[in-house]
Design a protein around this nucleic acid. Structure first.
Lengths: 128, 128
DNA sequence: GCAACTGTATCACTCATATAATACGGTCAA
DNA sequence: TTGACCGTATTATATGAGTGATACAGTTGC
């Protein structure tokens, strides 16, 4: 069963998108593997204190993306092969690195300064 | 006059917030300095193809933050001293670096991998 | 078979963001 | 002083995100 421990929606971005991202990151990092079951819409929404429709939206987008199998009546499962995992991982890392490198550049940070910042903040980060 | 060259709202975040961030980044990087005039609400909204009210919202928030002086009838100006600039710069860089490190950690990247990513993407970034 | 789950669908509602159209009064330079 | 520009304010409308409630049909395990 996919875990949502440490999932805190404080991002400002839409909730359904944060759920999507949480699962994509789990796939990229290997925490989520092929065949893993997703929590049901009702259970997960109750756990997170949000609306079932919001979870539904995330899950159905994951199905369109080909990462999840939804069968009416049965639980939803993650469907992965090696190529898919590698693709998700590469796309995720690339987009995150690109946007955040761009952000630091625009605030006037140098390349060496950015590397230094990454090294400094790496240990300070605690929450999952 | 503060420049909005290269300002492209494609972030997903609210437009007024992107304007705020653009100006904060300009201050942090030294591109925007004390006494600089802001484009009028009407001019900037026409340039960006957005609504004057949206620009107004950004400008009035900048005033509440103490970075801009708005006088009814006259143009709006940036008001800065060395301490303010340093504060804006530190807060901005810190939050962006923290976001970057948190994102990469959650996608299963190692510290060395993150440094490598920053170095690799630093040159590839072109658009301002 | 039946009960307890599951996914799916629909409707009405709130809220923030953004647009659109005006209007009013202050500032500033020719 | 006057006209062009400025900041500010108001009202109405549209859209997307999220909630809340409810309903229906499919599956699974006992």
């Amino acid at each position: 069963m996919i875990s949502f421990e440490g999932f805190k929606p404080e991002d400002g971005s839409p909730l359904y998108y944060q759920i999507l991202r949480h699962i994509r990151r789990g796939i990229a990092s290997g925490v989520i593997v092929d065949g893993d079951a997703l929590p049901s819409r009702r259970v997960l929404s109750a756990t997170l204190g949000i609306n079932p429709n919001t979870v539904q939206r995330a899950y159905s987008e994951l199905e369109e993306e080909g990462l999840v199998s939804n069968r009416s009546g049965a639980k939803s499962y993650v469907v992965l092969n090696a190529d898919t995992v590698e693709r998700v991982r590469r796309e995720l890392i690339e987009s995150e690195a690109r946007t955040l490198v761009g952000s630091l550049k625009k605030t006037g940070v140098t390349k060496d300064g950015a590397v230094e910042l990454v090294e400094r903040f790496w240990e300070e980060e605690e929450e999952l």
